[in-house]
């Protein structure tokens, strides 16, 4: 088992990145839609979008760090 542990961590990170990837897509896509519908609210939407992306991205980043720890 010892020699495949590195590869397992890679697969784990790949699996962990699926959910946040979809999530960031949804956040950014809906933000673009909101900005296109209401351009005057673009500033507020952009700030909120970065917040949403930051929260979603955290999961993928924890997976990235676990890859080093594991």
């Amino acid at each position: 088992m010892e020699d495949i542990s590195g590869a397992l961590a890679l697969i784990g990170y790949g699996l962990g990145a699926i959910g946040p990837g979809i999530g960031i897509g949804i956040v950014a896509g809906n933000a673009v839609q909101a900005m296109a519908r209401q351009p005057e609210a673009a500033n507020m939407v952009r700030t909120t979008m970065f917040l949403g992306i930051a929260f979603t991205e955290a999961l993928a980043l924890i997976g990235f760090v676990l890859f080093f720890i594991a």
Binding site: E57, F64, V65
Partner: peptide, 12 residues
């Protein structure tokens, strides 16, 4: 997450 986000992005 606040620390790890910054750290992981820059390490990557």
């Amino acid at each position: 997450t606040l620390a790890v986000r910054l750290f992981a992005n820059l390490v990557a």
